[in-house]
Design a protein around this nucleic acid. Structure first.
Lengths: 112, 112
DNA sequence: TATCGTTATATTTGCTAATACATAACGATA
DNA sequence: TATCGTTATGTATTAGCAAATATAACGATA
């Protein structure tokens, strides 16, 4: 029975959220599913919610994070750009480092 | 025009939030104001909201964080325990360290 | 040109959380 | 025992967000 330290990090651009845990999760699902609607379904969130998140990401980022195509065979789909994949990788790395850092700090709480 | 990394940390006890930024702010206001109602007023939040936050803190913590007294001269009031003050100090220190840590990580974003 | 599953978007509905409001209890002091 | 400003608690209202629903546009393919 001891205290735990939790944390959340996110990336902002122009005072708007660019990437957080939820958006990263959604982007990863797009990468594996190949479409926004399927990604939304696997994560259990509405298509509209998923779309607005991705729209926000692409509008905030310096370069496009996904390429969304409409029509054509299969009806269209969505895929990550190389830039998007790099962003996710950096986010994951920083997040992991942050957790490790906080794990080292927790002893200060146990001493109380 | 560059990305920024933001973070939030909080302390949990038994899977419930014990301390976060908002609660720390409220506790600090209680320390300076001497009462929960005045603290709520200065922070612009309803008394009920403030009360439920403090109630939650005291129920989650290993030891009492505030002493609330009712009646008497002045009608009563609230003050921090020594334990509460220590808790706040540790939270602030860890939070500051976390920010410094993330500042060092941000270069990874600038390289994209 | 008809079909298909997708992206894109507007509108409405419903639910949860925050707020506002009201009131009781408290106890030192005069 | 009347007063006061506080803590403590319940109830009702409001508001903001999430979900559901509906529909248009798209373009390769058959």
């Amino acid at each position: 029975m001891s205290y735990k330290i939790k944390s959340r990090i996110w990336i902002e651009s122009e005072n708007h959220v660019l990437l957080g845990e939820g958006r990263v999760q959604l982007l990863k699902a797009i990468e594996t599913e190949g479409s926004l609607s399927k990604a939304a379904k696997t994560l259990g969130l509405s298509y509209k919610k998923a779309w607005s998140l991705i729209d926000s990401v692409n509008k905030s980022a310096k370069k496009p994070v996904t390429i969304n195509s409409t029509g054509g065979k299969g009806g269209g789909g969505a895929e990550l750009t190389d830039y998007g994949k790099q962003l996710i990788a950096v986010f994951d790395e920083i997040n992991k480092n942050c957790w490790n850092f906080l794990d080292e700090q927790i002893q200060k709480l146990d001493e109380l």
